[in-house]
């Protein structure tokens, strides 16, 4: 067991975790932040994407102990106080959500994209969504939601 200090969604925590616990497991099992999902545990699907010191990572392939003294933002930390967030609103408006299991990962990827640039090109958008799998939507509505956001 190891002690870590970590800031999640602007809140500071001191946690005791086993070294073999992933950041994803820590978020879900220790902090009950179950918005980040496990779709593969192998870095292949993107459902577990969170911001780690501002950059998107696959939290299933990061150890909780590696996140010591770091700052993490999850889907739960995106909403404005009034519960809204422009990315979420765009996904809702374009019906870019079906089963919703991939959605938190996509939303985080888009947040990271918008943190990098407010005027992403088509190539930027493709890069941001790269490695994110959705088995329901066929991606069309997701692209539409992002285009709507950047216009």
């Amino acid at each position: 067991m190891q002690e870590i200090n970590i800031t999640v969604n602007s809140k500071e925590y001191t946690l005791t975790v086993p070294p073999y616990m992933s950041l994803l497991e820590m978020l879900r099992e220790k902090l009950n932040l179950t918005g980040s999902k496990e779709g593969c545990g192998n870095g292949e699907c993107g459902a577990c994407t969170v911001l780690f010191d501002g950059e998107p990572v696959r939290s299933c392939l990061v150890l909780a102990v590696e996140a010591d003294k770091s700052e993490v933002t999850t889907i739960e930390g995106l909403s404005n106080p009034d519960g809204t967030n422009p990315i979420q609103e765009a996904f809702i408006a374009e019906d870019a959500v079906q089963c919703g299991y991939c959605t938190p990962g996509f939303v985080m990827a888009v947040q990271a994209l918008l943190n990098r640039t407010s005027e992403p090109t088509d190539e930027d958008i493709k890069e941001a969504l790269g490695g994110h799998l959705c088995r329901c939507t066929g991606y069309e509505a997701i692209y539409r939601a992002i285009k709507k956001l950047v216009k």
Partner: peptide, 17 residues
Amino acid sequence: ERLDARKKTSGKAKFVA
């Protein structure tokens, strides 16, 4: 909008896992 869209886009929708 879809009934469950808000819960699902905010990570609040609970799945079995």
